[in-house]
């Protein structure tokens, strides 16, 4: 195992030579590339990358341009994880057979995918990769919606959010189902490491990514990715939204080691009311009508209950 890159503080981090390029086609203010940069810059080792079909993929490899400085592959919507698993298998085979061109490298295999490509269409592929124990990291860029196809609900879309296929209207408050708990599902594969991260907490993110790179076996990372286009906020406010997400505990930051040891990695000094998080986004605007205000209360209760549950799990080590 290669040594972790030494990143004590942001100044040190800023000496990283990015392996992801600008003039990609992501929306101004898109959190995807902030997350990608934090992941890639967490290591100096070689990288083999994939992206499943989605915003990141269609915006970073449109012929004749690529925004990737490491080898990268896209096959389809559902199989980015398996693409990287295949490459990792070939790496192992060629290593055994002594046929690697640069045998001294320690490549890291990372697949990026949106929540649609991870929670829905690619769910089985990711589960297979986790179960088989490939030495890969799957990173979900979780913006809770099919943003690339124009804002349809995914199984990550939270209650009350207005998506194009679960729109709010005269007789509907939008999405009726709660978000799938993907981190728990993946941790239940008894993988060595799974975690939830957020781009605003870069140090927590880098620590987790480095932890993920240091373990032997599959790693699952769920990264909250505020979407200026579909969450409907000003592009300049991306990090503000990420702050609201983590500090309201809507996106609690935690890790699960070996499928059972849960650690909460970030406890906000001041917990922001969920209402503030919701109010900052156009997708929840209708919840502030009188007839739906009870949903905001329910939101808060749900977030509180989840936080209490995480705390109990942390304490109980289960």
């Amino acid at each position: 195992m290669s040594e972790n890159k030494n990143i004590k503080n942001l100044k040190e981090f800023s000496t990283s030579a990015d392996r992801f390029e600008g003039a990609n086609l992501l929306c101004p203010g898109c959190a995807h590339s902030i997350i990608v940069r934090e992941v890639l810059n967490a290591t100096n080792d070689d990288l083999i990358l994939s992206a499943s079909t989605g915003c990141l993929e269609v915006c970073t490899a449109v012929y004749p341009y690529t925004s990737w400085d490491a080898s990268w592959i896209h096959i389809g919507f559902e199989n980015g994880s398996t693409a990287v698993a295949g490459a990792e298998s070939m790496y192992k085979a060629l290593k055994t057979k002594g046929r690697l061109k640069q045998p001294d490298r320690n490549p890291k295999f990372v697949s990026f995918a949106g929540d649609g490509a991870s929670y829905d269409i690619g769910f089985q592929w990711i589960s297979g990769c986790m179960e088989r124990g490939h030495n890969i990291m799957h990173v979900v860029l979780d913006n809770e919606v099919y943003a690339n196809t124009g804002g349809q609900r995914s199984s990550s879309t939270p209650i009350g959010s207005s998506a194009t296929t679960s729109p709010e209207g005269r007789r509907s408050y939008g999405e009726k189902k709660n978000k799938k708990d993907m981190v728990s599902i993946m941790a239940s594969h008894n993988i060595p490491y799974s975690a939830q991260v957020a781009p605003n907490k870069w140090k927590d993110m880098v620590k987790k990514i480095q932890h993920g790179f240091s373990v032997d076996g599959p790693v699952f990372i769920n990264a909250v990715s505020p979407c200026t286009t579909e969450w409907k906020f000003d592009p300049k406010d991306t990090m503000h939204l990420a702050d609201l997400a983590t500090d309201s505990l809507v996106f609690p930051l935690y890790e699960i080691i070996d499928g059972h040891e849960l650690n909460i990695t970030y406890r906000p000094k001041t917990v922001v009311p969920v209402e503030e998080y919701l109010a900052a986004q156009g997708r929840f605007k209708h919840l502030f009508k009188d007839e739906y205000k009870h949903l905001i209360k329910e939101w808060q209760e749900r977030v509180d209950a989840k936080w209490a549950q995480l705390n109990r799990r942390e304490e109980a080590r289960v």
Binding site: V58, A61, V62, S71, W72, I73, Y91, L94, K101, P107
Partner: peptide, 14 residues
Amino acid sequence: MLDFEHPVTHGVQT
């Protein structure tokens, strides 16, 4: 892809 000195991008959009 495993030639780390010549990174490639596979599976672009056209």
